[in-house]
Design a binder for these strands. Structure first.
Lengths: 123, 123
DNA sequence: AAAATTATTCTACATTTGTAGAGTAAATTC
DNA sequence: GAATTTACTCTACAAATGTAGAATAATTTT
């Protein structure tokens, strides 16, 4: 089960906060803020999909993510790579390198990083 | 307007074929193939969203993409980068380099590519 | 303690998506 | 030329999504 758009947006907020009560989540929205019932519905659906859980404190709940942002993101990217590059990460990397408008400095940094990565693998 | 999942799947077929009549599109599906009316509906919706158009030949239509796969893909990736890396392509690149399981050779190729890219920019 | 506020659940409803039958008009086959 | 097939449009309908009011129960304020 995937998150829908509005669920994902809420998830982003929750990832940033790490954990939060509903009121805090709503506070994090830009105006016009959604109705509390809207968020309650989304949270419930996200629980059903096993993306969040909560700890009860008195009559309130502190929600927290069950899925790490990093993992979720990876899944998204891998999905894209599968659909558009026939599952080839390197083809994607090549495409990205050419098409993204990384600056000279950013490219340098990236090269640096890749070199480290190469070394690490060798070791 | 974005493509929905099943629309995107159909779009992938159309990108591959470059242009096609409905029957060819359906033929490209694995079994169980969708009903022709299903595809007709999807195509109509995709026309409304301005993702495909067609040329009429007799009583049939040859459909073709109005959006290049590359551009569509870029938009997807940029959306992800915006949501997950605060719009920083280089942060994304760094993450990807670390997290993807590129082989030693692939990393080498990538470094090569980046070096070329750096040179090109310098020129 | 009555009034107001809060936190959550239940219900609701419009839109979008996934999927396809029924109908119709043209083209092909018998 | 009657029967069948083809290509497409119209209509339909269940499930998912986006959004929120009404109801209820607990909590705080006056």
């Amino acid at each position: 089960m995937q998150l829908s758009n509005s669920e994902e947006q809420l998830m982003q907020i929750l990832w940033k906060k790490e954990k939060a009560f509903m009121k805090e989540l709503i506070a994090a929205y830009p105006d016009p803020k959604p109705a509390t019932t809207t968020i309650a519905t989304l949270l419930k659906r996200m629980q059903d999909k096993n993306f969040v859980d909560y700890v009860q404190y008195g009559r309130s709940r502190e929600y927290f993510p069950l899925v790490r942002k990093k993992d979720y993101f990876s899944k998204q990217v891998n999905g894209l790579i599968k659909n558009f590059f026939n599952d080839s990460a390197s083809q994607f990397a090549s495409f990205f390198t050419k098409e993204s408008n990384l600056s000279q400095d950013e490219l340098e940094d990236l090269r640096q990083l890749i070199e480290e990565q190469i070394k690490r693998k060798k070791a």
